[in-house]
């Protein structure tokens, strides 16, 4: 529950950061997550790395990929109509999926890294894997929170999201900040991919689609563009999904998640932590 939630939250951060800076939904983000999982597979089986190295490799690889998609696909469209950027993002996502599919047509099985040790805390039983996932995810989120709220880069990032027009006039290189945003967002997506692949060891090129959308929902629940909101939204969605699976047949999981989203959007269109934008006429 917390495990799934923390993975959603990590991916949601990528959506929300890009949205905050560019007001663009990066539909390819779910596929970056998928590639993170594939990089995890690659480094575990081919390079035979340890878990820590694997995590670093897939985070770094995903970050590189994120920066590249931004540089070659989104940057030329920075000042184009917003829909063309969205369509481009859909295109990039399709490209990543199908390219992976062309290279690896069969689902891959991740070798297990953990022996199923059980930890008992109070009345709760958790596997060490779950604990590790949650600790890592929360750790990454704390690091991100520090970056965003305590460093100069974070200040520039927040400045762009509050007023994109004025920032270049203050001598801040928007391109650099956008690249960094994509690097951080995609890196977190890659980390999520690794954690997910270890927890649910069968990976295929389309796994990013559903998980990506769910993460996107989390970002919206929390209020898209709001970084702490994305974390909250991820945990809420993970919680709701697991509870829905307990109470109803598990095939209803998606219905419940999406219905929740629709109800929330009708009553609170700007998310839980988002602020409603007043429209000036």
């Amino acid at each position: 529950m917390l495990q799934l939630g923390s993975i959603y939250a990590l991916i949601a951060l990528g959506y929300t950061m890009v949205y905050g800076v560019l007001q663009m939904i990066n539909f390819a983000h779910g596929d970056i997550f998928m590639l993170g999982a594939f990089m995890c597979f690659f480094s575990l089986t081919v390079l035979k790395t340890s878990l820590g190295q694997t995590l670093l490799i897939s985070m770094f690889g995903a970050a590189l990929l994120g920066v590249m998609t931004e540089r070659f696909a989104y940057r030329p469209l920075r000042y184009a109509p917003k829909v063309s950027a969205i369509i481009t993002a859909l295109g990039v996502g399709m490209f990543l999926e199908n390219f992976t599919l062309a290279l690896s047509p069969y689902p891959k099985h991740i070798p297990s890294v953990f022996n199923g040790k059980q930890l008992v805390m109070g009345g709760l039983t958790m596997s060490s894997l779950q604990v590790l996932t949650i600790v890592l995810a929360v750790g990454l989120m704390i690091v991100l929170d520090i970056i965003v709220f305590k460093t100069k880069l974070g200040m520039a990032l927040r400045a762009i999201s509050s007023d994109a027009a004025i920032v270049p006039l203050m001598g801040i290189s928007v391109n650099k900040v956008v690249s960094m945003t994509f690097a951080i967002g995609a890196g977190l997506g890659g980390a999520a991919g690794t954690l997910y692949a270890i927890a649910y060891p069968v990976i295929d090129p389309y796994m990013g689609v559903m998980v990506g959308w769910k993460a996107f929902i989390s970002a919206v629940i929390g209020g898209i563009g709001n970084i702490r909101g994305a974390m909250l939204g991820g945990f809420i969605l993970g919680f709701v999904e697991v509870f829905a699976a307990v109470l109803l047949p598990s095939t209803y999981r998606d219905v419940v998640a999406f219905s929740l989203l629709m109800i929330l959007l009708i009553y609170r269109p700007y998310g839980l932590l988002g602020r409603p934008k007043t429209l000036k006429v």
Partner: peptide, 8 residues
């Protein structure tokens, strides 16, 4: 998708 992105 590559053609789509180029077109866009």
């Amino acid at each position: 998708p590559i053609m789509l992105v180029l077109l866009m």
